[in-house]
Design a binder for these strands. Structure first.
Lengths: 217, 217
DNA sequence: TAGATTGTTAATCGATTAACAATC
DNA sequence: TAGATTGTTAATCGATTAACAATC
């Protein structure tokens, strides 16, 4: 809403973090906050916060600061958390089950409407109130329910094949936990992908520990 | 090794990704690669690849390209994947079990030596060959085995308390999956933290889908 | 040697920080 | 009004890209 200048990629990447911190403040009953105070909490400069928040409309007030609730709602709206998009989960192994149970989809702009797996032992079970179906049933399911997004918790060997099938079935967005890098050039096909590489983060920790431990000598 | 100029933060953040792509090439039996070819595979410019790889020593050869295996080993060494650091997992719920089973710690610079949970139903069980102990046993365990890193798959309400106990017990690095932002200022205490906010990535996908779908009109 | 491809410098671009006038 | 704090411009910093000489 409001004026919406150009929101840079760097700002977009920070929005979820702002959203989390503002939510935390709301929980604590804080109704207004200055850029300086928020900067202390988040560990970024007040200058950057003002620059960032000003990208999408003048929600601050000189001499007062920002209204936490207004800002929170505005960021939710920019991120699209104020609507829900239908999503299906492919792969109900350890990781898939953890994601299904752990993630608050409804508060993140999604609704989990189907789960699919190859393992006969899982098919017919229910996870978070959602029936686990055979992967054979992906296409007929999509013809009826038209999910917009898919969460991939499957081995990298089958990611290419499954994602191609899903794209054919009309899926537009992927949250990909498999180790296969779903190609970025999907963008040209009108597909968006968020690859989650948990092991990248573990390797970064390894690097940081290495650096830390060698500094200590 | 070699000359090691200053490796910038931006480069460090890309190293795990380089490492994954080079590993993939090795699997395919590729022994040499040019910056141009790698740039096509990874979706970044050849210029950036040369700039990046040159930060840590002249591993390329004019007219030839890069030796995939040499580069792979070099990045592993920079990230510290060529040694193993002892780690414990706190929280053996859905997410903890998924992380324990799913993650190849040994190939990422870590060795999982202990798992802790509060749930009596889990204590005494074994996950990936590692015994689940009561969280009461964290301190005595640490006195004997001195783990360097801890993986936190626990509710955000207990993260502060547990992490303080672990720091007192000598833990230096955290891989934190709880929704609590382990403070960055830990760095001053000689502690490193990698926070994994899976929901941030889901919110980013929500934003990208919103943008994509609104463009289509 | 000729062709390929790096290493490296210089130019560009974008993001962060500093500063302060505007204004609540 | 005086004090606080934003909005916004200008300055700085760092990262990316382009270009080409060096060299395998």
């Amino acid at each position: 809403m409001a004026h919406e200048k150009n929101i840079s990629k760097a700002v977009i990447k920070r929005l979820p973090r702002y959203y989390r911190f503002l939510g935390e403040l709301l929980n604590q009953g804080v109704t207004r906050i200055s850029s300086r105070l928020l900067s202390e909490k988040m560990g970024i400069t007040a200058s950057q916060i003002r620059q960032d928040l000003n990208c999408f409309g003048g929600f601050g007030q000189q001499g007062y600061g920002y209204n936490v609730n207004v800002l929170y709602e505005e960021i939710a709206s920019i991120l699209g958390l104020d609507r829900q998009v239908d999503a299906i989960l492919i792969g109900a192994g350890n990781l898939g089950r953890a994601v299904a149970n752990h993630m608050e989809f409804e508060q993140r702009g999604f609704r989990l409407i189907g789960i699919f797996d190859e393992n006969p032992a899982l098919i017919g079970q229910t996870i978070k109130g959602v029936l686990v179906r055979s992967t054979d049933k992906i296409e007929p399911f999509c013809r009826v329910y038209h999910p917009t997004a898919a969460i991939l918790c499957i081995p990298k060997t089958v990611t290419k094949e499954i994602s191609d099938r899903l794209i054919d079935a009309g899926v537009k967005g992927f949250w990909n936990f498999s180790h296969y890098d779903l190609a970025l050039n999907q963008k040209e096909r009108g597909i968006v992908v968020e690859n989650v590489h948990m092991s990248d983060s573990l390797m970064t920790l390894s690097y940081e520990l290495k650096t830390l431990l060698s500094e200590e000598n």
